[in-house]
Write a protein that binds this DNA or RNA. Structure first.
Length: 619
DNA sequence: ATAGGGTTAG
């Protein structure tokens, strides 16, 4: 017998058997959890949640503490002719059983002592191998136990098994266990179903998760379960499902509301986020910091300045205590809503003792093309003793790229690794490539792409490609194109434009055909405008708005006026997938025009109009 | 298992 842990070593230390945290925690409850008690007539398999070798067959008196024997109702004096085997977690149960069976036939005990093992610590065994990082093993151990013993798993066994499934992300194992749970009637157990639900969500199996939905809905008098479902579906981007649950939840707490706001905001359902926030305010519950940070993020993304200002005011009225997350959200909201001045003003009055507030501020300045201010703030940040992080450098490099500060960008990119020991990630390379490309230093940009230690992605290639287009670098453009995996319609547009500018009309045409063949549609351009606290959204040629008639009247009056003052529509800029007849109409009813016309229709003269878009504005 | 929710980023 070659065992690294001699039985006696285990024996002596009572702590190995009982004092061990693992065993203690599972404790006495676990004994008999299998529904089997030692009746003196069977072979015992003693499972010990402790690292070590498969135990040797031996005499139990030498291997077990008195207290453990009491727990197991084992005879104090072990009958010398009865073999037992100690199995240590982390080792192969199959080998253990083979050893056991071997020994038994050798001693010819088989008939007198049928193979029926006692597993007082089965769950501890599973847990031990799970926590030791071999979740696969706890699954095979479980199967061995089923096969060789009469052990009855309980709900705790399944919680462990499901945790094991989560770790090895084995969807088939999950489904197998699910089916066993159905048979055992364990789907009435809330803990089990909760775990199962989370697993399906994490594996993107929304359909399976939905099947558990009704089960869980019954428990949703306790908002906790409803919240878990909400968050699950929101994580998968299933806003409708989440909203469905949210609506039917009999009791909603603040976490329910906040999860909905955060989830919708993150999935860019910005209007929903704002509407839910309004409803929260009206519901009588008082929004907290979580609610505010999420809704401010939604306002920022939507460019909803009025709404954002109302939210800000509400925050002030409530006297909410600020923290770095709230401060960041607030500064970001004003920056993204076109009020960088207000953002700076707020930034100057709040506590700025956290990097994320600075990151947001620097990022805001970058987006507004205020590169030198961004650099100034960066220096100030350092002089206040704050340590920049990866996000800081993304913001800083973006600032450089948007303001054509090539030298500064090079400097910071260098300092980032040498002085601040931050390893550049793809985002940093992206900003750097963008800086160089925009400045026309295409060869240098391409060299950087070739030498960087991360795999260039579509964003990087796109930065290069659009510069190739602008600087008419057909050759590099073609190289870039080979690398890029065409995903968006924008990639086709860029390539086609490169060919057109090189007068390679057939190639240009070919690209469009290719795009059509692959069925990639031009992505929908949207514009929206905020009037009061509500947002109105338009797509090109939209006629769904209740005020459509008025909008088009304003629009036609405007375009007639523009034409009479000498404006000539640039039809050749309209994308080529649009038929000839549609071209002019499409130009006049670009979504931003609708948004502007609507604003003119609905506001007093001299009112500032701010339109937000999801794509670039056409020339 | 008495849990669960938040900001900034090429």
């Amino acid at each position: 017998m070659t065992s690294s842990v001699h039985p006696h070593e285990v024996v002596d230390g009572e702590r190995h058997l009982l004092g061990h945290d693992e065993v203690e925690e599972v404790g006495i409850d676990e004994v008999g959890g299998d529904g089997i008690k030692w009746d003196g007539s069977h072979v015992a398999v003693l499972a010990v949640a402790e690292g070590g070798d498969v135990g040797s067959v031996g005499h139990v008196n030498g291997a077990m503490s008195t207290s453990m024997k009491k727990h197991l109702a084992l005879p104090m004096e072990w009958p010398p002719h009865v073999p037992f085997i100690a199995v240590y977690a982390g080792h192969d149960l199959v080998i253990a059983f083979e050893k056991l069976i071997c020994t038994m036939s050798y001693t010819n005990c088989l008939r007198r002592y049928p193979v029926r093992a006692i597993f007082p610590y089965t769950n501890a065994i599973l847990r031990a191998s799970l926590e030791k990082g071999s979740p696969e093993k706890s699954l095979t151990d479980y199967n061995s136990m089923l096969r060789f013993t009469a052990f009855c798993p309980d709900y705790r066994t399944y919680v462990l098994l499901l945790k094991a499934c989560a770790k090895c992300s084995n969807i088939y194992a999950i489904m197998e266990i699910h089916s066993q749970l159905v048979k055992l009637g364990l789907l009435s157990n809330q803990r089990i179903v909760t775990h199962l639900f989370k697993l399906y969500i994490d594996h993107g199996r929304v359909m399976e998760a939905c099947k558990l939905f009704w089960l869980m809905l019954e428990w949703s008098a306790e908002p906790f379960y409803g919240n878990l479902m909400l968050m699950g579906f929101l994580k998968c981007g299933q806003i409708d499902k989440a909203y469905q649950i949210f609506k039917r939840m009999p009791v909603k707490d603040l976490v329910s509301w906040n999860s909905m706001i955060a989830g919708t905001a993150r999935n860019s359902c910005l209007k929903d986020a704002m509407n839910i926030f309004s409803k929260l305010v009206n519901s009588g519950l008082v929004p907290d910091g979580f609610s505010f940070s999420s809704v401010l993020s939604a306002c920022a993304q939507a460019g909803a300045r009025c709404y954002g200002m109302w939210v800000h005011q509400l925050m002030a009225e409530l006297g909410l205590e600020m923290n770095h997350i709230l401060s960041s959200s607030l500064v970001d909201m004003y920056a993204k809503c076109g009020r960088i001045d207000v953002a700076i003003g707020i930034f100057k009055t709040i506590k700025r003792n956290h990097v994320s507030v600075w990151n947001t501020m620097i990022g805001g300045l970058a987006a507004h093309g205020l590169g030198s201010d961004a650099v100034m703030f960066f220096r100030e940040m350092e002089s206040e003793g704050l340590v920049p992080d990866g996000v800081t450098f993304v913001a800083l490099l973006t600032a450089c790229s948007h303001s054509g500060m090539v030298e500064e960008a090079r400097q910071y990119f260098e300092a980032m690794t040498t002085k601040y020991s931050i390893t550049p990630r793809i985002e940093h390379y992206g900003a750097m490539v963008d800086t160089l490309s925009r400045a026309g230093l295409l060869d240098e940009a391409y060299d950087l792409v070739k030498t960087m230690n991360v795999k260039p992605d579509a964003v990087i290639w796109r930065a290069l490609l659009s510069a190739c287009c602008r600087y008419r670098q057909t050759k590099l453009g073609e190289i870039t194109v080979k690398e890029i995996a065409f995903q968006g319609s924008g990639d086709y547009t860029l390539l086609s434009n490169i060919y057109s500018s090189a007068n390679r009309w057939e190639d240009s045409e070919e690209v469009w055909k290719e795009r059509k063949k692959k069925g990639i549609r031009k992505s929908k351009g949207l514009s929206w405008v905020e009037l009061g606290r509500s947002t109105h959204e338009f797509k090109a040629g939209d006629r769904s708005h209740p005020d459509t008639d008025g909008i088009y009247k304003v629009l036609h009056r405007l375009s007639n006026k523009a034409k009479s003052e000498g404006y000539i529509p640039l039809t050749e800029l309209v994308s080529k997938d649009v038929s000839e007849e549609e071209r002019e109409e499409n130009l006049t009813v670009h979504s931003e025009k609708l948004a502007v016309a609507y604003s003119i229709l609905k506001t007093m003269p001299r009112t500032e109009i701010m339109v937000s878009k999801n794509l670039q504005t056409c020339q």
